[in-house]
């Protein structure tokens, strides 16, 4: 029986999961919408992964979680590694592309740039609060223009003269877009302009002052948008790699970290049948009113977090 490791990346918009074998090969993967319910998304994800590895003689011995709900899902799956997105993405990408120097990552809520030297992360930047929401911004604008996000990129490529759209802030971009549409600009030009705006916003905010050097890998949900990829290539002036599994890179990276951790415990897919509940409450013990989150498995408390001081600490037996 071969050993396998699960990596789960639970983002704000989508949940990604992979199973890798001990040769770091992806043997199963899935990508689905979080729909605001990470717990349920992970249950669906695990069911799908279980189905895919059935009959392949793989025993899962480690779980790693990353993404904004990494703590919650880490508690639920009893993960051996709970790691931030940046490190997970960097590890995943450098495993597949050992000579990569720059990673662009645009997700639903966060965008980041990771600078790598000789296979090591040396610098990174993440959007400040203001430049957030690129992925979700694109999908809401696609909806406004009456096209699906999936075809957004290919429509952009048909444009010969992209419309100029204010790139400073998504709020301005949105009102500018509405204005340009009313002025009679063609839909494909506006879409291409939007892709350009997202890229200049990214390079001016997240990538500001960073050393951008080829080879460059572009990933995250938005990397599936071929229009954005082309806009990046136009502005950076070199070819950019988008891996077919680019959206899975965080999950892949954290699965590798789970393998590297050396912690092995047999993982039981049955946890999808267990009843997990979360309960949030405001701690009344001092004036900070911390929002404390408790996770229960079959009505037994397994983890809690959110307290700023010891008054709010809840002991887990």
């Amino acid at each position: 029986m071969k050993k396998g490791y699960i990596g789960i990346d639970i983002g704000s918009i989508s949940t990604k999961g992979v199973v890798v074998d001990s040769n770091k090969k992806i043997v199963a993967s899935d990508y689905l919408w979080t729909e605001g319910d990470p717990m349920n998304a992970v249950k669906r994800l695990l069911k799908s992964l279980e189905k895919q590895i059935k009959g392949k003689d793989i025993q899962v011995v480690g779980v790693g979680t990353t993404g904004s709900a990494r703590k919650l899902i880490g508690a639920v799956t009893n993960a051996s590694v709970v790691k931030n997105e940046i490190t997970a993405h960097a590890i995943g990408t450098t495993t597949l592309y050992p000579d990569v120097n720059t990673i662009f990552e645009i997700g639903g809520q966060d965008s980041k740039i990771i600078i790598i030297e000789n296979g090591y992360v040396v610098d990174y930047a993440m959007n400040t609060l203001c430049a957030a929401g690129t992925g979700s911004f694109l999908s809401s604008q696609a909806h406004r223009l009456g096209v699906s996000v999936e075809e957004f990129g290919s429509i952009a490529l048909t444009s010969k003269q992209p419309t100029n759209i204010a790139a400073r802030c998504t709020v301005f971009a949105e009102s500018d877009l509405v204005h340009k549409a009313q002025m009679g600009h063609k839909k494909e030009d506006i879409i291409a302009g939007l892709c350009k705006a997202v890229v200049s916003n990214y390079l001016n905010n997240v990538g500001k002052g960073k050393r951008i050097k080829a080879p460059i890998v572009f990933q995250g949900g938005v990397s599936k948008n071929i229009g954005v990829k082309k806009a990046f290539e136009d502005q950076v002036g070199c070819e950019i790699t988008v891996d077919a599994n680019g959206h899975l890179m965080g999950a892949f990276g954290v699965a590798i970290l789970a393998q590297k951790s050396g912690i092995e415990r047999t993982f039981d897919f049955n946890i999808t049948a267990l009843d997990f509940k979360t309960k949030g409450f405001e701690c009344p013990k001092c004036a900070n009113h911390c929002e404390i989150m408790c996770v229960y498995r079959d009505n037994r408390l397994i983890d809690s977090w959110g307290n700023k001081c010891d008054n709010g600490a809840i002991r887990v037996n």
């Binding site: 904004s68 790691k83 931030n84 997105e85 940046i86 490190t87 992360v121 040396v122 990174y124």
Partner: peptide, 27 residues
Amino acid sequence: TMDTQDGTAGLETRLESYVDILNFKKE
């Protein structure tokens, strides 16, 4: 940059990744 935003998730992610970089460098 701190504002009145509550919730330490963004802060933790940023500091964690930053410390990872320091550790990578040391390694």
